[in-house]
Amino acid sequence: MNAVTERVRAAQRAVARISVAPLLVRAAIFVIVLAGFALAFPAEVLSGRPVLFLAFAALLPAFGPRRIWATFTALVTVGGWLLATDGYGRPVALWRLLAVAALLYLGHTLCALAALLPYDAVVDPELITRWLLRSAAVLLGAAVLGVLLLQATGTGGGAGYQWVTVLGLLVAVGTAALLGWLLRRR
C-alpha cells in the first residue's frame, strides 16, 4: 500500500509541474491532426463512430510525439484522402490538397517540437514563434513550388493530382524507411 501511495504522490507532483507551453503545443497537435482528418476524409465517413476513432487517433501523437503515432496519423490522413478521391469520387481541388499537405507538415513539425519539450519545460514564447514562422516559410515555399511544378509539367486535373499524391506518399514512406535504417545502423 505504501508503494501505491508513493506513486500517487509522484504523479501529483509531476502534474503540478506541468507548464503551459508544452500543453499548448500538444493541444495544437491534436487540433491540427483532427483538422487534417476532417479535410482528407469524405463527409460520409465523418459521422458516427468513425469520428470517435479519428479523434482518438488524433490524441495519440499529442501524447506520444516521440513514437510512431505522427507517422501513423499521417498515413491515416493520406488513406482518407485516397478514400475520398478514389472511393467516393470527390474531385481533387488544389486548395484542399495544399491544405491537407500543410496540416500534415504542421502536425509533423509540432510533434518534433513536442518531442523536445518536457512537460515541465519553461519555454520562451519566442522559441515557439520562431518555430512556427520557420514552418510557415517552408509551407509557403512548398506551396509555391508545388503549384509551379504542376503548371510546368502539365499534370493538373484530378488524375495529375492523384498521381502526385501517390508519388509523394511513396517518397515519404521511402524517406522514413531510409532514416529508420540509418538510425538502426548507428
Rank of each mutant, 00 (worst) to 15 (best):
R49A: 13
R134K: 13
F53P: 01
A16P: 04
L140P: 05
T175G: 15
F53A: 06
V51S: 09
A99Y: 03
W95E: 12
S47D: 14
D86V: 12
F53V: 12
D120R: 05
P118V: 02
L133Q: 10
G156H: 03
V173G: 05
L113N: 01
L98W: 01
L183T: 10
A99G: 00
V144P: 00
A102F: 04
W131H: 14
A101T: 14
L182N: 00
A101V: 02
S47L: 04
Q151T: 11
Y119L: 14
G64H: 15
L82C: 02
P91R: 12
G107Q: 08
A143C: 08
T73G: 08
T5Q: 13
L39W: 09
E6K: 12
L103F: 05
L167H: 10
R96W: 10
W181R: 15
A102S: 09
G158Q: 11
L149W: 06
L150V: 05
L54A: 01
R130E: 14
F41P: 03
L94E: 09
A142M: 12
E6W: 04
A74D: 09
P118A: 13
A101R: 11
V173P: 01
V25T: 06
L178I: 10
E44Q: 13
G160I: 00
L103I: 13
G156N: 02
N2H: 10
A115G: 15
A172E: 08
T5I: 13
R186L: 11
R13S: 10
G168A: 06
F41R: 05
V138C: 05
P91T: 04
I29K: 10
L149G: 10
A40C: 04
T73E: 15
A99H: 06
L169F: 03
S135D: 15
G180W: 14
A152T: 00
R130Y: 14
G156T: 03
V33S: 00
L182W: 06
A58W: 14
A112P: 00
A137N: 14
S19F: 01
W69M: 09
Y105G: 05
T71P: 01
G89L: 07
R26S: 02
F53C: 11
T153A: 03
F72L: 08
I32E: 09
G141V: 02
P22T: 02
L98Q: 07
L179K: 14
D124N: 15
